[in-house]
Design a protein around this nucleic acid. Structure first.
Length: 522
RNA sequence: GCCCCCAUCGUCUAGUGGACUAGGACACAGGCCUUUCAAGCCUGAAACGUGGGUUCGAUUCCCGCUGGGGGCGCCA
C-alpha cells in the first residue's frame, strides 16, 4: 500500500462534522501543525495563476511554521510525462518556492504522485461501494453526451438520471458478467444542503440536489480528480486547502465524499481568480501566462513573486515592495480579497525595475550574462568582468528587464558603432562647425594624460566654454560619435567605462565618416 | 439555461456606520533636476454600478436590479 505509513490518525473520525449549516472552520483540527499542498497536474509548465496559488500556500505554510507539500495530480494518464513534471518544478524553483515534502523531496506520506497511489484509492472505492454510497455505472460517454444534449435542448440542467443505480438485480448481474467497461459513481448526499465556511468567503451553501452522482473512478480504473484529492488530502493530513475560486463548486462535491469516507475536513480558502483585461478567466490564450515566459522576458523572480502576492492580497499598509521573507511575515489569509484581479503587467514592469536597481552590480551582471550570450555579445566562458560590471552599472537604472540588456549594452561590445552623420551635427550649429568641434574634442582628448571622469569632464566643459557652446550642444555629437546612440548613460562615465582606446578610435572613425558627409548635410 | 460567487480611480487596492473634501501604488499628464535617456522629487487628473430600505447618519448593514466571473466532463 503506497501510503501505508500515513495511516489514518486517531481523531480523524469525522464525528464532529455534521451536514448542518453550522459546520464551521473549528471543525478542522487546529492543534495539528499546518500542512498545505500545491497539487499541479503535469502540464509542462506553470501557469501564473497556479504560481500565485502556490505562493499563497507557501507563504501560509512558512508563516505558520507548517509544511509546504508538492503533490503531482496526474490521474489523467493522457498527459503525464517526466518531462512535463520537470517543467513545472523548474518554475517553482525559479520562483524560489522550495517545498519541504513531496515529489522529488520525499517525506512520510508518499508516494507523491497520484498515479502511484492506485491501491489507496481502490480501497476507499471498495469502502464506498460496500457502504452503498457508490455504484457502478455502465452508461457510455456517448450515451451521456446524448443525454446532455437533450437536456440542453430542453433548456434543463443536466443531472445524471441514476440509470445504473436503479438497475434491477438481474440487469446488474448481466452488466457485470458482460465485462463491459464501467465507471464508479458517488451517490450524491441525501442531506438538503452542503455547507462549509471558507476562510476567505465565509459561509457557503449549495443545495444537495444540485450535486449529481459524479464519477469517482474512470473506465480505465483511475480515480477522478475530485476523488483522489479528497483521499490524498486526508491521508496526507492536509490542514488547509488553499486553491483558486474555480474550485469552489468542487469543494461542495468533495465534502460529501470526505464525510462518506469518515474523513475530517481540512479548512478551505478559495482565492480570487486572475483574469484577462476583459475580466475573463486567465487562460492559455491570454498572452504570456506561463512563469517561464516571464523568466525569458527578463523578469526577476523576486519581482514576479512580489507582483503575484499583491494580486488578491495586500498587507494593509502602504508598503509595495516585499521580499519573500517580508511576505512570509506579512501574509495572512484574512486579508485575501474576494473579487477577481485583472492580471495587468504595468506594475510588474515597475517592480522589476525596482528590483533591478536594488541588485548589487555584479549580481545584476551575472543575471544579464545569459541574455548577452544569447545575443552573441559575450562568450560566457571568457568575460572581462570588470568591463562588464562597469557597463552594467551604467545601465542599471535604465533597465526595465534583463532582456533589454543586449540592446542597452551593445555599444560596449560592438566593433563599430557607425553613427548617422546627421546625428553628429550639434544643435543649432552647422555641420561644418560641428565637425570642427569634434576634431578639437579628439585633439584635446588625445592630449589628456589620464583617462578619468574628472579629467574628461574638465576637458570637455572647457572646450564647450572656449567654443562658446552650451555643454549639451557639444556633448551630444560626442555621445553619438562614441556610442552611435542619442540615448545613453552620462557621457563621461560612458567614456571611462569604454576606455580610452575604444573612445578615441570611435571618435576618429566618426570624424572620418562625417568629413565625407558634411557637404551633403550643409 | 441552472447553481454558486463577486462589485471603490484605467489597473492592483485601503476602507469595516460618522475621523471620507474616499487614502496609497502603478500607469497617465504637467513641472523640477539635468550633457541625452533613465532614475529621483513635486503637482495634477482619475472611483464608491443602480434602485430601495435600516439608521440621526451609509463606500461600509439588508433586499432587488444591473453588470462581471466561475462551475455544470470518464480534465485537473
Amino acid at each position: 500500500m503506497p501510503s501505508g505509513g500515513a495511516g489514518m490518525p486517531a481523531g480523524k473520525t469525522g464525528n464532529h462534522f455534521r451536514v448542518s449549516p453550522t459546520c464551521r472552520s473549528e471543525s478542522t483540527n487546529m492543534a495539528n501543525k499546518v500542512r498545505v499542498r500545491i497539487a499541479p497536474s503535469p502540464t509542462g509548465n506553470l501557469h501564473v495563476g497556479n504560481a500565485r496559488t502556490a505562493l499563497y500556500n507557501y507563504l501560509f505554510a512558512r508563516q505558520q511554521g507548517g509544511t509546504f507539500i508538492l503533490r503531482i495530480d496526474d490521474t489523467d494518464a493522457k498527459r503525464s510525462t517526466e518531462k512535463d513534471i520537470d517543467g513545472v518544478l523548474v518554475s517553482f524553483r525559479w520562483l524560489g518556492l522550495e517545498w519541504d515534502e513531496g515529489f522529488a523531496a520525499g517525506g512520510d506520506y508518499g508516494p507523491y504522485r497520484q498515479s502511484q497511489r492506485r491501491d489507496l484509492y481502490d480501497g476507499h472505492v471498495q469502502q464506498l461501494l460496500a457502504q452503498g454510497q457508490a455504484y457502478r455505472c455502465w452508461c457510455t460517454p456517448a450515451e451521456l453526451d446524448d443525454m446532455r444534449k437533450a437536456a440542453q435542448k430542453q433548456r434543463r440542467p443536466f443531472r445524471y438520471p441514476q440509470t445504473c443505480l436503479h438497475l434491477s438485480a438481474a440487469e446488474r448481474a448481466a452488466k457485470e458478467r458482460s465485462g463491459d467497461p464501467f465507471v464508479v459513481r458517488f451517490l450524491s448526499p441525501s442531506e438538503s444542503t452542503v455547507d462549509f465556511t471558507d476562510l476567505v468567503r465565509g459561509d457557503l451553501s449549495v443545495e444537495a440536489s444540485e450535486l449529481d452522482d459524479l464519477v469517482i473512478v474512470k473506465a480505465d480504473g483511475m480515480p477522478t480528480y475530485n476523488f483522489a484529492s479528497v483521499v490524498d488530502d486526508s491521508h496526507m493530513d492536509i490542514t488547509h486547502v488553499i486553491r483558486g475560486a474555480d474550485h469552489l463548486y468542487n469543494t461542495h462535491r468533495q465534502i460529501p465524499i470526505a464525510r462518506a469516507l469518515g474523513f475530517s475536513l481540512p479548512a478551505y480558502a478559495h482565492l480570487p481568480l486572475l483574469t484577462n483585461p476583459d475580466r475573463s478567466k486567465l487562460g492559455k490564450r491570454s498572452g504570456a501566462v506561463l512563469v517561464g515566459d516571464y523568466a525569458s522576458q527578463g523578469y526577476l523572480p523576486e519581482a514576479v513573486v512580489n507582483f503575484l502576492a499583491f494580486l488578491g492580497w495586500n498587507p494593509g499598509t502602504t508598503q509595495e515592495v516585499f521580499s519573500l521573507a517580508e511576505l512570509i511575515e506579512a501574509f495572512s489569509l484574512e486579508r485575501v480579497n474576494r473579487a477577481n484581479a485583472v492580471f495587468e503587467l504595468q506594475k510588474l514592469v515597475w517592480l522589476n525595475g525596482v528590483y533591478i536597481r536594488g541588485l548589487p552590480v555584479a549580481e545584476l551582471a551575472d543575471r544579464c550574462i545569459p541574455f548577452l550570450a544569447d545575443a552573441g555579445l559575450v562568450d560566457p566562458a571568457d568575460i572581462d568582468r570588470d568591463y562588464l560590471n562597469g557597463a552594467v552599472e551604467l545601465e542599471q537604472e535604465r533597465l526595465k528587464n534583463l532582456a533589454e540588456a543586449p540592446e542597452a549594452l551593445d555599444f560596449f561590445y560592438a566593433e563599430d558603432v557607425t553613427p548617422e552623420a546627421r546625428l553628429l551635427v550639434a544643435k543649432k550649429q552647422t555641420p561644418a562647425d560641428s565637425l570642427r568641434a569634434l576634431e578639437q574634442t579628439l585633439a584635446r582628448l588625445r592630449g589628456l594624460d589620464s583617462w578619468e571622469l574628472a579629467t574628461i569632464e574638465a576637458c570637455l566643459r572647457g572646450l564647450a566654454a572656449d567654443l562658446g557652446w552650451k555643454a549639451g550642444q557639444l556633448f551630444m555629437p560626442i555621445r553619438v560619435a562614441v556610442t552611435g546612440k542619442t540615448a545613453t548613460p552620462p557621457l563621461f562615465e560612458t567614456m571611462v567605462a569604454l576606455g580610452r582606446e575604444r573612445s578615441l578610435s570611435r571618435m576618429s572613425k566618426a570624424i572620418d565618416a562625417f568629413t565625407g558627409a558634411v557637404a551633403e548635410l550643409a
